[in-house]
Computed example of a mutant assay.
Amino acid sequence: MGNAYEDHDLVEANELGFPIHPRSLTGHFNRTIKKANVPRIRFHDQRHTHATILLKLGEHIKIVSERLGHSNSAMTMNVYSHVTKDMQEQAATKFEKAMRTRNSEN
C-alpha cells in the first residue's frame, strides 16, 4: 500500500495498517488452521502451545522464557510446571536406563 499504509505498531493489521475486526481475524485463523491441516487450537492458545511444544522438545527453559518475554525463567517454570513434571519422569527414565546400561557393561 506504500504511503497509504499507516503503521499503528500492531501485531495483526489489515492491508491499510489498521486493527483487524476480531471476527475477521478469527475467521482467517480458522481457515489457515484448516488449510495447514494442523490440530485445531483457539487463537489465544497459540502462545501456550508454542511454549509447551518447545519444552517437550527439550528446549532450555531460558530460551523459552526469552521467547515469551517473561522477566525470568522462574516465571516460565511456574506457568509451565505441568510440562516439566512429564519431563522429570522422562529424565528419571533416561537416567535409570543409563545406569542399567552402565551396570550391564561392568
Rank of each mutant, 00 (worst) to 15 (best):
T76Q: 06
L55D: 01
A74E: 09
I33L: 02
Q88H: 07
S71N: 10
T76G: 07
Q46E: 09
R67W: 05
L57G: 08
S71P: 02
T49Y: 11
T52Y: 02
G27K: 12
A98D: 12
I20H: 09
D45I: 11
R102T: 13
A98P: 05
V64G: 04
Q88I: 09
E6W: 02
A98N: 13
G27D: 15
A92N: 12
F95A: 14
M99Y: 10
L10E: 00
H8V: 00
L16A: 01
T52F: 05
N72M: 06
D9S: 06
S104A: 09
P39Y: 04
H44T: 05
E96N: 15
D45G: 10
Q46P: 00
K94A: 11
R42I: 05
M87A: 06
G17V: 03
N14I: 00
K34C: 03
V38L: 08
R100N: 15
K97W: 07
F95E: 07
K62N: 03
E12L: 07
K56E: 10
L25D: 08
L16G: 00
S81Y: 01
H28L: 10
M99Q: 14
M77T: 11
A98F: 14
T49G: 07
T76E: 06
D45A: 13
R100I: 14
N37Q: 09
K85I: 03
F29N: 02
A98L: 15
K85F: 01
E6Q: 08
L55V: 02
A13G: 01
R31V: 02
A13V: 00
S65K: 04
I53F: 08
R100L: 15
L16M: 02
E66K: 15
G58V: 06
I33P: 01
M77R: 10
N72C: 12
V11F: 03
